[in-house]
Design a binder for these strands. Structure first.
Lengths: 149, 149
DNA sequence: CTACAAGCTCAAGTGAGCTTGAAGTCAAGT
DNA sequence: ACTTGACTTCAAGCTCACTTGAGCTTGTAG
């Protein structure tokens, strides 16, 4: 047992399917070396990278965005504590905004739904301004959001 | 100006695209009558229904689930305050769970990322148990989640 | 009467994030 | 030598929530 992992081992340890790991590699979120056979060999460090990816996904980042973050990691040394935490610096506000929205929605459950104000043009809970962003279910351009060119 | 809306008016008032309204109708989330011409005519009440849909989506329900909720509305009278609020009864806990997760994630930003514990098999922040559900980005069966039969 | 905007249907396309299948290679055990 | 299982690539498939386009009809303003 060296400290290089096969894709199966990496999948098992991370809980992420091998097919997903190949997909991530294809999208340049992770990288591997190859054994003589052509089989992937992962450094143990890939596990932390994968953890970071899963973490970031839960927060709501797309793989594209996550790749952008990972690209900021230094290439000259193995990323340390500070390197990782720098990446997540901006996330707190993102989380805070989402929590704030959920709290407003929760308040609306008792205050707003069913009352006369549940109306898209009048109720601040579901007004178009709040519908920007992509944190809802499914990949869609939020109603009222201009599509990217 | 009767109290029946064309699809264009409904779209404008709700902020939801006409194509989406047709799509919702196709999926039986809303309904319309037809003018002699075959054009859709919506009752004003559809606006509240649409508001409910948008609201529920922000909370993280799929259209399928939303349809299930809407089906619970009484057919014998126009839904009133109580009818609507009954629907959202179970949502509070759903929101609370999601908020709790986001708070844990936020805590992890300062405590956990970059430290030795950012490891998928050890860190409670990103462990597989927390990865169930569909509240993240994109339609996917969360890693480790069994696919529905 | 003529534009032209708005509506219709139906099929196909989009995007994210994967999974699945086909067809083949490689490594280990019996 | 043979089987089994893990791996490879590449293309195609899948879900969700829509949007877009083609081709046609309807409604309205001048």
């Amino acid at each position: 047992m060296t400290d290089l992992l096969t894709i199966g081992e990496a999948a098992k340890r991370s809980g992420v399917a091998a097919s997903a790991l190949r997909f991530y590699e294809d999208k340049r979120l992770i990288s591997s070396e190859r054994a003589g056979s052509g089989h992937r060999r992962y450094h143990r460090a890939v596990l932390r990278r994968i953890a970071f990816i899963v973490f970031a996904q839960r927060i709501g980042l797309t793989l594209e965005e996550i790749r952008g973050e990972l690209d900021k990691l230094p290439g000259d040394h193995a990323p340390n504590r500070r390197d990782w935490s720098r990446l997540s610096a901006g996330w707190t506000s993102r989380i805070d905004e989402r929590i704030a929205e959920l709290e407003r929605l929760r308040a609306g459950l008792t205050e707003c739904i069913g009352c006369g104000c549940l109306s898209l043009d009048r109720c601040r809970l579901v007004n178009p301004g709040d519908r920007a962003g992509r944190s809802g279910p499914g990949p869609r351009y939020w109603v009222g959001d201009p599509r990217p060119a």
